[in-house]
Design a protein around this nucleic acid. Sequence first.
DNA 1: GTCTATATCTGGATAGAC
DNA 2: GTCTATCCAGATATAGAC
Lengths: 219, 219
Amino acid sequence: MAAEESTAIRRRGRPRKSQGGDDADPRVAIVAAASALFAAQGIEAVTMAQVAERAGLQQSSIYYWFRSKADVLRAILEDVNRIPLRIVEEARTSGGPIADRLHRLIREDVLALCRFPFDINEIHRLAAGDPDGFADYWEERARLDQEVAALVSEGVASGALRPVDPVLAARSLLAADEATQNWFRVGGDPDYTEEDVAAHVAVAGVRSLLADGVDWTPA
Amino acid sequence: MAAEESTAIRRRGRPRKSQGGDDADPRVAIVAAASALFAAQGIEAVTMAQVAERAGLQQSSIYYWFRSKADVLRAILEDVNRIPLRIVEEARTSGGPIADRLHRLIREDVLALCRFPFDINEIHRLAAGDPDGFADYWEERARLDQEVAALVSEGVASGALRPVDPVLAARSLLAADEATQNWFRVGGDPDYTEEDVAAHVAVAGVRSLLADGVDWTPA
DNA sequence: GTCTATATCTGGATAGAC
DNA sequence: GTCTATCCAGATATAGAC
């Protein structure tokens, strides 16, 4: 994107007025600043001026690195969007009883989402309003659904899980994970740690699908 | 709020340019218009001009009936916010096995939320940004949590439910309901009806909490 | 490369005529 | 009561100096 300095010490351009962010790659600083602010206030509520201030730049300087606010958001989503997918794929390909794999999947997904610096629901709304600009996002999300559904399907076929609709069950599980993230972020209830919540949701998720008469307790 | 016309036929004020909304109480028309638009586009994305147009008024005329956009939102929340609470209270006071009552509660809550004309998550964000203005909202929401927790608590005490933390379990259940609403609204997946979804979530919710060895199927 | 300055646009809210 | 006209604030994005 931006020009790269080979090895010279001298910086290009007018010196910064004040550096609040890391003096490193401004692109990185901008993304970091935007992440934190988006997380704290919601994406739409954050102005480019705020992002700039936190990144140690003037407002307009951001436009040297990114062409728009949506462009900044896309850069962030690129980094973090693949985490749940990676978790699911791990659960899909690993061995062992379905219930254990499902349990691990939900637990890790909730934990990952809780650490995720955004309100996923807000992202969904923004992405829904600009389907073309977020085509990658939607594609990955669809794959996430499919992977989980496949896992549930496997469990139903093996008799470990009761005969639910795999697609419906998968979406419900993922929705529950996202919902957990949301109220955990908003409420910030200090009585429960992320681990408490993740553990509860994971056990509840598995047991909600377990076949009758199957005995299971978390490994 | 606004002056009431006793029985006279004559209307006050300058005639409307064009009436798109019901000719009834403009307050009602405004609320209805705002509800529909908020639901379709998200609250923050809707402008007062849009609301006015749909209500058959000019943009500024809204300010005769409401003092601000947030005021319109509050008027809407007043009407709909009590529905889940009513459902929960019914489940609390009615008789029968806990599992059945819980099942009915979740099912009806999901159905109510799916018909709810808003993204609850967006409301939470807005309300979080203006805690004073939405004090009533938060209070009712807290009561909702407490009621469900009390129901779970009763089930745990009676041995029908496994020994979960009632508060954590209650929040998880409600979060799942809200999450369901969200993806149902956004995704609009035509493969499943509201009833399909509500039925699945309700059964899953109950089974996720059922004590070991307890046999239960939906009534 | 980053700055200052500013164009442009949008949306909430007000003033006063009718 | 509703209108027209307008103010005002805040935000994105651009132009051009340094």
